[in-house]
Amino acid sequence: MYKVMIVEDDPKLGGLLESHIRRYGNEGVLVSDFDHVLEKFKEIEPHVVLLDVNLPSFDGYYWCRMIRSVSTCPIIFISARSGTLDQLRALENGADDYITKPFHHDIVIAKIHSQLRRVYGDYASVSEERKVEKDGLTLYPERMELQLGEQTVALTKKETILLEILLGRSPRLVSRETILEKLWDDAFVDDNTLSVNITRVRKRLGELGIEDALETVRGSGYRLNSVWKQ
Score class of each variant (00 low, 15 high):
105 H>S: 15
95 A>L: 06
41 F>Y: 14
99 I>G: 08
170 S>T: 09
149 G>H: 10
126 V>W: 00
137 L>V: 09
42 K>G: 03
188 F>D: 07
127 S>C: 04
7 V>Y: 05
122 D>R: 13
211 E>H: 07
154 A>P: 01
94 G>L: 01
47 H>Y: 03
187 A>R: 14
147 Q>S: 12
74 P>K: 00
49 V>K: 02
159 E>G: 09
188 F>I: 02
223 R>S: 05
82 S>Q: 08
118 R>E: 14
34 F>P: 03
98 Y>V: 02
222 Y>L: 08
109 I>L: 15
84 T>N: 09
194 L>W: 14
115 Q>D: 06
118 R>K: 15
214 L>K: 06
90 A>E: 08
188 F>C: 00
29 V>I: 07
219 G>W: 00
64 C>P: 01
186 D>F: 02
8 E>H: 03
106 D>G: 14
158 K>N: 08
227 V>E: 01
225 N>I: 12
161 I>Y: 05
228 W>A: 04
14 G>P: 13
225 N>Q: 04
206 G>D: 00
82 S>R: 10
198 I>K: 04
221 G>T: 05
4 V>Y: 15
29 V>W: 00
73 C>L: 09
192 N>Y: 13
213 A>C: 05
211 E>L: 03
181 E>Q: 08
15 G>I: 04
202 R>N: 04
83 G>L: 12
56 P>S: 14
227 V>L: 03
92 E>G: 06
45 E>V: 06
207 E>L: 08
149 G>Q: 01
184 W>G: 04
173 L>E: 11
72 T>I: 06
18 E>A: 13
76 I>Q: 00
25 G>N: 04
196 V>R: 14
212 D>L: 08
28 G>N: 07
3 K>H: 05
157 K>H: 13
96 D>K: 05
225 N>R: 13
227 V>S: 03
223 R>Y: 12
165 I>S: 02
208 L>I: 00
197 N>T: 05
212 D>N: 08
9 D>N: 15
121 G>Y: 00
154 A>H: 12
147 Q>F: 00
127 S>A: 08
129 E>W: 11
171 P>V: 10
88 L>C: 08
84 T>C: 00
200 R>K: 13
28 G>S: 06
46 P>L: 07
174 V>E: 03
216 T>N: 11
198 I>E: 03
117 R>A: 14
20 H>N: 06
87 Q>F: 06
119 V>W: 12
67 I>C: 14
230 Q>P: 15
214 L>I: 07
193 T>I: 15
95 A>V: 11
9 D>F: 02
157 K>R: 04
21 I>M: 14
104 H>I: 11
173 L>T: 09
215 E>F: 03
189 V>R: 10
192 N>V: 12
112 I>Y: 12
52 D>W: 11
96 D>L: 13
221 G>D: 07
66 M>K: 15
141 P>F: 12
38 L>Q: 04
130 R>G: 09
159 E>M: 05
175 S>I: 05
13 L>T: 05
110 A>M: 13
68 R>S: 01
34 F>I: 00
77 F>I: 01
156 T>L: 12
74 P>A: 07
112 I>C: 06
16 L>W: 13
17 L>C: 11
75 I>Q: 10
161 I>F: 02
13 L>Q: 15
48 V>Q: 07
35 D>S: 15
29 V>D: 09
170 S>N: 02
223 R>D: 10
160 T>S: 06
55 L>C: 11
15 G>S: 12
145 E>C: 11
